[in-house]
């Protein structure tokens, strides 16, 4: 897998994870579970040798996504 594809999957995974957290906070457990499944699906497609390399990218993406969600809510 090319690094670009791994970055894209990590970015999509972070978007699903952020959405799952948001839905859970809003009390939508079913929607949150659906988003978490999509999140795991994206992460699962990334080969293990690339996961380490983009681990911090995923965490940065997730932090920014949650920040944007919270600011949007405010």
């Amino acid at each position: 897998m090319k690094p670009g594809k791994a970055y894209k999957l990590a970015a999509l995974a972070s978007a699903h994870r952020a959405k799952a957290i948001q839905l859970l906070e809003m009390g939508d457990g079913v929607g949150a579970k659906r988003e978490d499944i999509a999140y795991l699906d994206c992460l699962g497609q990334i080969p293990s040798m690339l996961r380490h390399r983009i681990g911090s990218f995923f965490e940065d993406c997730l932090r920014i996504k949650l920040d944007l969600i919270r600011r949007g809510r405010a």
């Binding site: 090319k2 670009g4 594809k5 970055y7 990590a10 970015a11 978007a15 996504k65």
Partner: peptide, 29 residues
Amino acid sequence: DLLLGVVDIRELIMAGRDQTLAEIMSENV
């Protein structure tokens, strides 16, 4: 400077405003 993907300016305008470039880029360059 490793090339990960490319985003056409039209794709950028059409994207969700909170999406990252990694989400919308074409990775097969």
